[in-house]
Design a protein around this nucleic acid. Sequence first.
DNA 1: AATTTCATCACCAACGTTTACTTTGAATAG
DNA 2: CTATTCAAAGTAAACGTTGGTGATGAAATT
Lengths: 341, 341
Amino acid sequence: MASKATSIDIAYRAGVSQSTVSRALRNSPLVSQETREKIQVIAKELNYKVDKNASNLRAQHSHTLALLICEDPTNDESMINPFFLSMLGSITRATAQQGYDLLVSFQQLSSDWHADYEDSNKADGIILLGYGDYVDYAHKLDKLLAQNTHFVIWGAEHNDKAVLSIGCDNHQGGQIATEHLINCGYQDIAFLGDSSSHSPEFRDRYLGHIDELNKAGLTLSNKKQFAAISTEKSGFEAANALLDSGQSFDAIFAASDLIAIGAINALNKRGIKVPDDIGVIGYDDIPVASYAHPALTTVKQNTKLAGEKIVESLLKLIRGQEVKPLLIPTTIVVRQSCRVE
Amino acid sequence: MASKATSIDIAYRAGVSQSTVSRALRNSPLVSQETREKIQVIAKELNYKVDKNASNLRAQHSHTLALLICEDPTNDESMINPFFLSMLGSITRATAQQGYDLLVSFQQLSSDWHADYEDSNKADGIILLGYGDYVDYAHKLDKLLAQNTHFVIWGAEHNDKAVLSIGCDNHQGGQIATEHLINCGYQDIAFLGDSSSHSPEFRDRYLGHIDELNKAGLTLSNKKQFAAISTEKSGFEAANALLDSGQSFDAIFAASDLIAIGAINALNKRGIKVPDDIGVIGYDDIPVASYAHPALTTVKQNTKLAGEKIVESLLKLIRGQEVKPLLIPTTIVVRQSCRVE
DNA sequence: AATTTCATCACCAACGTTTACTTTGAATAG
DNA sequence: CTATTCAAAGTAAACGTTGGTGATGAAATT
C-alpha cells in the first residue's frame, strides 16, 4: 500500500486546490455544496483522515486532555485506588463525548508530573486526580499556575490559590454519614482516617462529622479518632489501635470504604459482629463495597456527574469562559453494615 | 506571560542557529559539548519544551499508543469490567516506562472504532482490549490489517488471521480450574458461561475444562452448561437456570468472577451453602473476588506481565522487529469458595 | 454598457520541528 | 604555501495542515 493519503492527493483527484479540500472536509460554507460532496466522497474512498499532528500544529491546540492520576506513594504499586478507576471511566466517556481525546498517566506524587503535557502542546488542559497532600505539591501547583496551564484539580476548593477545583462535598458527606449513624441509633462513634490538613478530603469528612455530632448534642473525643490512609491494611491497623485503646464505641465512621473493610476485618477477627455489636459506615461506594460482608453502607460520590463536570469545566477554562469551583453533594447508600433503626 | 518559547527563541539567545538548538537538545554529537550545555541551560531557563505536534509531524510518528477498550454493549454503561481496569493500569505503566504516551478510549463494540487513531497519526499503534466476539468485528480487523495499522489484540491466537495477539492461556486456565475442583473432591461439575465461538475466551476455558475432565475420566453433560456473559446478573440467572433444570452437580466452574459471584448469590438465596454444599471457582481474580463471601477461589491472569508484554510486543511490531503471539499461563488462587481437600 | 456584488475557489504563508546538505575555518599534511 | 581533512555550525526543505488575501467570472445593479 502506498503511504497515507493527504489532502493534496484528494485535491489532485478532485481537480481543486488543497485548501479547498481542507475547507470542504470541515464543512466550510466557503465551498459549494457540489464540490464539497465530491471531495468528501473521494476522501472516503481514499480513507483519508486529517493528520492530527499537522492540524494541531497549525491550529495550535491538540483537542486532547491529559489526565494525571497521582497515587499515594505509600500505596501498593500494583493496585490502583478503585475510586479513581471509577472516575477514570467517567472522565474518559465525558471527554470522548466532547470530541476530545484523553491521555492518561499515573504518577507518583513525588515525580515530575508538572511534566509538560500542556507545555509540549500534547494536551490543551490537564486534569489532576488524587487524594492529596496538596501542601506537599503546592509549589508544583504554583508552577502550573505561573505557566498559566489550564488545569482542574479534583478535590475541595483551595482558599489560598486560584485553582479550579471540582469535588464532592466531603463536609456534607461527613454530615450525612454521621446523621445516618445517629438515626440508626448509634451514639458513640469513632472516626478512622487521617484528620490532619495533610489529607484535605479526610479532614473535611471529619469536620462534617464533628459538626453533625454537635448538632445532635454529641461530641467526639479525639481519643476516638485514629489516623489511616485509604487502604484496607491501614484500616485494619487503625481499627486494632482503636480496639486496643480501650475506648468505648458503638459505631465506626471510616473515611473510606477500604478503611471500612479493613476495620470490619479487624472487628470480625475479635469476634465483634457488624452491624449488631458495632455499626460501620464507609465512604466512596467503590465496587467492592456491595460485595463486602456485610455489604457496606457508605457515602456515594457521584463519579459520573463529577467526571462530566470536570471535563466540562476544563473545556470552559480552555475556552476562556468563566468557571467556578464546584462542590457536588453526596448521598448515602444503605446496605448492611449499620443496623436498621 | 508571553507565548511559549520556541527553539528559535533559544537560538536567538544562544547566538546560534535554530537547527543547532534542535541538535543540542537531542544530544547530537554534531554539536560541541560547550554550546550544547549553553543551549540546554537556556532551554531550562525558558522552560522550553519541544512542541510535540511539530516534532511528530516532522518525524512522522507520535510516540503515543492508543488503547481501545471495547465493551460488551449488553453491559451496564456505567460499570467497566474490572478485569480491563486492571489491565489498563498495567498497560499505562508499561507504556510510560517505554517513554510513550497512552491515549485511552472506551468503545462500544458496535461503534466505528477502527476509528482512525493511527490513520490520523495520533498514535503509532493500537491496543485492542475486549472480551470479544471477534467474529462480529472480523471485518474491522480486516480493515485494520488492510491499512497495515500496527496493532495488538488481547486474547487468544487467531488461526485465520495474521493478527498479533497476546493473551492468557484460557485453555490452560480451564484445565487448572477443573483440576483444582477435582482435587478438592468435586466430581459433578457444571459450567456457567457462553461456550459458543461467539466468545472465544469462554470457549477456550470451556474446552480446557472438558479436556481436564476427560483426563480424569469424567464427562460433562452439555445439560450442565449454561450460557452467561460476564456480569453478576447473568451469572445469577444462569445459576438459577441450572438449579431449575434439576441437573445434579456438586460444583460450578464459572467462566468469570462476576458470573461466579452472581451464581453464589443464587445459590445462597436457595439456602445452598458454598463451599460446603457446592464448590464454586471463578476466573480473572478481579479485586472484588477476595471480598466476596465466601472469598472466591479463582484463576488469576497475570495482568502486570500481560500489560508489559502487550506494549513490548506492539513496540516491536512498530519498529518492524519480529514478534510472535504469546500465551501467558495462569495460576490458581485458592480462597474459600471451594472446600479443602 | 459599465460597475458593483458575490459566491467559489486558488494561492501562499505560517505552525515548530528535524535533517540532508552546504559552508566555514582551523588544523594537519604534502 | 597550497591541498586535504574534519569538526562545528548554518541553510533550507520538508512534514500536512489552516486561514487570510486575492483572483475569477457570473449575476445583479446602475
